[in-house]
């Protein structure tokens, strides 16, 4: 019984961390219509940033400034934000496919940098030497995971509240206005490029938060954590859950991650041994089909965007 609870705590932690990243993507794609093909770069920047700033000094690379944990986490988010700002300022004034391609490229380049630059992120063997905060007093076991889950859930809730407030604010209306008709927005004297940049950077900072929490949870990050697979997974979560709807984003994260892990569990129980060699390929084909099918038959996702008619005068 305790085992089941322990696993549920663990599963919920990972799903919640992914949900935060999906919320970040929802701000970019769902609300602003920005295609981020390199979610994993900003996620990774958060993870590496946090572990570098909060970790212990290591002999073979620059890691380890032993900063107070919350500062390290915010630092990780800032790293993600800066990366997004650089990419955004170069691409956001162009047609939208430039952003898609550049973000895809930045993810490849980020992984490549971390794989090679041993002095920076430990190289291909990954970044160690991070002590999880309060590990001394809480130990490593179930209690720690439970408290960490509470922290992650608080982060998720805070992100959710922040985005909900943002979406119903005038700024949120502006985002949707730009997504729907950029020229109209411009003619009203708004600056689409600046607003899109703000949304892009904010979304990436949220992904950085998710990455920071992820790195903290495993106390380790390596280039294998930031392969393009994660970008696909996070996108699938948003598309299935419902782009433009924050509840949908969270729902999608839990659903897809549950399906992903459950299918592995079910395969190990029920599938013939021969089939397991193909399990990986089949799983990717299935997720590809889910994405395409959703786009074709229910592009609004499970929980569609509620169109907010601005009517502040009536409230």
């Amino acid at each position: 019984m305790i085992g089941i609870i322990s696993y549920i705590v663990f599963f919920t932690t990972v799903a919640s961390i992914l949900a935060i990243a999906v919320l970040g993507l929802n701000l970019q794609w769902g609300n602003t219509g920005l295609f981020n093909g390199g979610v994993v770069a900003f996620f990774g920047a958060g993870a590496y940033g946090t572990l570098l700033l909060g970790g212990k000094p290591q002999p073979d690379h620059i890691a380890g400034f032993e900063l107070f944990y919350p500062i390290a986490l915010v630092g990780g988010m800032a790293v993600a934000g800066i990366l997004a700002w650089v990419v955004g300022i170069l691409t956001l004034r162009m047609r939208h496919d430039y952003l898609a391609i550049s973000t895809f490229g930045v993810a490849v380049a980020f992984e490549n940098l971390m794989r090679n630059a041993e002095w920076l992120g430990g190289g291909a063997k990954g970044l160690r030497g991070f002590e999880r905060p309060f590990r001394d007093s809480l130990g490593d076991g179930f209690l720690y995971n439970l408290i960490f889950l509470v922290v992650v859930l608080l982060c998720l809730l805070a992100t959710y509240r922040f985005l909900e407030t943002l979406v119903s604010s005038p700024f949120g209306r502006l985002l949707r206005a730009i997504r729907e008709d950029e020229n109209a927005a411009r003619s009203l004297g708004k600056s689409p490029a600046k607003i899109r940049l703000t949304a892009f950077v904010s979304g990436s900072v949220i992904m950085g938060l998710a990455g920071g929490l992820y790195g903290t949870f495993y106390a380790f990050v390596s280039p294998q954590d930031i392969l393009p697979t994660l970008t696909f997974q996070i996108w699938a979560m948003l598309i299935v859950g419902g782009a433009g709807n924050n509840k949908g984003a969270v729902l999608g994260a839990f659903l897809i991650w549950a399906a992903w892990t459950f299918s592995g569990w079910a395969l190990s129980r029920f599938a013939p041994v021969e089939a397991q060699l193909y399990a990986g390929s089949i799983q990717y084909i299935l997720i590809g089909l889910v994405i395409v099918t959703m786009l074709l038959w229910r592009p609004q996702g499970l929980l569609p965007e509620r169109l907010v008619v601005s009517q502040s005068g009536l409230r």
Binding site: F35, W235, I239, I282, I285, G288, I291, L295, L296, P299
Partner: peptide, 29 residues
């Protein structure tokens, strides 16, 4: 074409992501 017909041009980018995943793994299979 179906997504174009719905006027969701931006969604095509992601649909192409999904299609690439399907094609690549089918070939692998």
């Amino acid at each position: 074409r179906r997504i174009r017909a719905k006027g969701e041009e931006l969604s095509m980018v992601f649909a192409s992501f999904g299609l690439a995943l399907i094609v690549r793994n089918l070939i692998g299979l």
